[in-house]
Amino acid sequence: MIVAGCDIGSLTAKAVIMKDNTIIGYSVIKGKAKPEDSANDVMSNLLEKTHLTMDQISYVVGTGYGRNKIPFVNTTISEITCHGKGAQWIMPTVRTVIDIGGQDCKVVKLDNKGNIVKFSTNDKCAAGTGRFLEVMSNVLGVSLDELGIISEQATDPINLASTCTVWAQAEVIRYLNMKKPIPDIAAAINYAMANRVAILANQVTVEKDVCMSGGVAKNKGVVAELERLLGVKIKRLKYDPQIVGAIGAAILAREKIMGDKQL
């Protein structure tokens, strides 16, 4: 039985194909202006990789911000559910999933069956989302990937006074003009980011094990600051943190078919 999950986020599109209970391929692409184009591109890319055709896939679940625009799905399921499902499948001991996407942040608390107990989300304010880091990395002139690494060299981290991305951006420009070392500024940015996420996480009271999904989970600086702020170790997932939602969608696709068969 071959199934797929497709997660169309605000900045990237992700797809996963599973055969029985194993991932046989995945793809992550930068999103296009239209969600339907992103969906078609990421899926055809993945089909090519796995030497499959669309009609070999029995069921597709769509999720993410653009889920209602995916042309080839059988059904759509919320991101919260998919992230919970995906994380739990990868690591059954997970109870809290912190997902930081390009345009939002979610903290999902699960029971031992992977059901959602509680969640909190921010998609209103860019601070505490991937967008904050994107804006800041542009100002600093470093790539998003570098941002998490160079902060490790900080010797005298700065504290940003502003929460608002717009004001924090002006602050960072001021520090650059003052010739403050880039690693010190990068550390301040990662800290500010982690601080916003920690506030959201504390609204659901974090329970172990904790894992992170979404692109920002690849930023070591943010992860380390978040561990400090929450006082817990964040467990690394053995898959790319960006595809957790798509994995969850694929598993839910599998469950749909199995459920149908049982009937």
């Binding site: 345009q103 209103k124 304010c125 860019a126 967008r131 804006v135 608002c164 991305t165 717009v166």
Partner: peptide, 16 residues
């Protein structure tokens, strides 16, 4: 969107 950062993207879509 209220957030300046998100509203900026939104108005670009509106123009498009």
């Amino acid at each position: 969107n209220q957030c300046v950062i998100f509203a900026e993207t939104e108005i670009i879509s509106l123009v498009n």
